[in-house]
Design a protein around this nucleic acid. Sequence first.
DNA 1: CCAATTGTTATTTA
DNA 2: ATAAATAACAATTG
Length: 273
Amino acid sequence: MPELAEVEFYRKQWNPGLGHLIQAVRVHPRARVFRECTVSLLVGRLTGAMLRSSSAAAKQILFRCNGGCWLGIHLGLSGELRMEPAGYAPHKHDHLVLEQRERCLVFTDPRMFGRVLFDVGRTPPTWWTRLAPAILSAVFTTEAVAVFLRRHRHMPVKAVLLLQERFPGVGNWMADEILWRAAVHPKRPAGTLTPAEVRSVWRECRKVCRLALATIAGRGRYVPPALNVHIPGSWLFNHRWEDGGRCPRTGGRLVREQVGGRTTCWSPARQRL
DNA sequence: CCAATTGTTATTTA
DNA sequence: ATAAATAACAATTG
């Protein structure tokens, strides 16, 4: 599930626990999600400590802890952060549980493509500082997009949009949504887009990020659990998941096919090769 | 049993 | 040598 806006949504799920003492840390230490993390260090440092603040960028979440340490969470394909009542007994896929007096903060991930990172230091870890500049930042210009598409000119544009080094936070559904709005066929070699199409892709990147954040992550400080957000039927999002869907703009049939190794959905009436 | 899944990375191929 | 394609990772669901 988690792309840019879902990651931001899940980040907020731990907000009620920020600034509260972590009494105990429960882990499944052998779980694959800890493959890049020294679990003993994490448990030692977080027990009796606090999460002070959090941020999300791309598909990464960063928690700044007191005592000069940093907890990172990547949700992978199936990860979630949620809150449970105090005394919660961890379930099978709950790999990390921070126990507080009034609640438990839970990281769960059945497929374990996600990962937990933990660093000690005065400044944020490099895996955070080296993330590509956000799509909604001023650095993400139409020129930067044009250069990147040219560099990967032989790849299908859909595959290029999934490259995190230029499109941080974009995942499979966002890439399809962007191309559908820009009316660009996902199989187009990235180098064949006209300047107008490049500009359109750039603009829709920003628009989809802004809309997704506003709709899915909410503007408030804390969105109650369950991602039962209403996504308008005018988005491709609501029609892309199974065969037989119809394009909300043209009314025509949507196509679903592998492009760049991923299931891709597009509207042939709108997106021409 | 087979295919599919909203992500990333190591390995293989061109 | 580089860029692009593919396999692999794991668990569950249809």
